[in-house]
């Protein structure tokens, strides 16, 4: 049986009718066309599908879309308004080469947004601890750590 529900995604309200078994990750990609959220392992291990639910980083492959009823979801598409207007964190990743193939990047960025909000000056070990929830098979993480450090600086510069 299909369920009708409403939710907010990146500030826009939607009403949709879905099967309960539809994962939030698939709902975002297929129903809303927001393909920035990537799907990797579909069992919560890789972190590629990480989005914000009411401001907290969660795995969208471990949530059913109907569970976001009445809630606010933010995806990587919420960060910027085009290549000329990157979010400071994205700018950090671009500048410091924090990605190679880029598949894991949206999940990493969405994990980092609330992390840097709570802890604007993280240590390298705190960054690595946070990144343990996102798998990257290209970079070896070194450049990602540097990108996070640069991104954190840029966020602070922008806010002062």
């Amino acid at each position: 049986m299909k369920h009708t529900f409403t939710l907010t995604v990146n500030g826009r309200n939607y009403e949709r009718e879905v099967e309960p078994r539809l994962l939030l990750s698939d709902f975002l990609r297929h129903d809303l066309g927001l393909t920035g959220t990537h799907v990797g392992c579909e069992h919560g291990v890789c972190g590629a599908c990480t989005v914000l639910l009411d401001g907290e980083a969660v795995r969208s492959c471990l949530l059913f879309a109907v569970q976001a009823s009445g809630r606010e979801v933010e995806t990587v598409e919420s960060l910027d308004s085009g290549p000329q207007n990157l979010h400071p964190l994205q700018h950090g990743f671009w500048e410091a080469h924090g990605l190679q193939c880029g598949y894991c990047t949206p999940g990493i960025l969405m994990s980092l947004v609330p992390f840097l909000r709570e802890n604007p000056n993280p240590t390298e070990s705190e960054i690595r601890d946070l990144l343990s929830g996102n798998i990257c098979r290209c970079t070896g993480y070194q450049k990602i750590v540097e990108a996070v450090q640069l991104g954190a600086e840029l966020i602070q510069e922008k806010s002062t």
Partner: peptide, 9 residues
């Protein structure tokens, strides 16, 4: 217990 993103849920 797992990662921050998992403990959030």
């Amino acid at each position: 217990i797992a990662h921050t993103q998992i403990r959030n849920r």
